[in-house]
Simulated scan of single mutants.
Amino acid sequence: MGLSYKFDLELLLYLTKKAHSSFYYYQKQNKLPDIYKEIKELIKTIYKRHKEGYGYRK
């Protein structure tokens, strides 16, 4: 909740042209646990193991 403590929420939503519902939806999503955390860590280890190679050979 970085900027909403320094600035008025109404002003921030107006400037970014976002609805209140969008703000509260993403705020709620950030509090939920990441169900893909283990998979993301596995992908990162595979990426590092293969010398950070990604995609096709160049």
Rank of each mutant, 00 (worst) to 15 (best):
K40F: 05
L9V: 10
Y25P: 00
Y25G: 02
K48V: 07
K6D: 05
A19S: 15
Y47C: 04
E41C: 07
Y5G: 08
L11F: 03
S21T: 15
E52Y: 02
L11A: 11
K28R: 14
L3I: 13
K18R: 15
I39C: 09
L13F: 08
I39R: 13
I43F: 08
G55W: 05
S22L: 15
D8T: 00
K6F: 13
I39E: 15
H20P: 10
R49H: 09
R49P: 06
S21C: 13
H20K: 12
L12T: 01
F7S: 05
E38L: 04
H50W: 08
L12P: 07
Y47I: 03
A19M: 15
K17N: 14
L15M: 15
Y14G: 11
R57F: 15
Y26D: 09
I43G: 06
K18H: 12
K31V: 00
K58Q: 09
R57T: 06
Y24L: 15
S4T: 04
Y5Q: 10
Y54D: 04
F7T: 06
F23P: 00
Y54K: 09
D8G: 02
R49T: 12
G55M: 00
L3E: 12
N30Y: 08
T16S: 15
Y25W: 05
F7L: 09
K40S: 09
G2L: 11
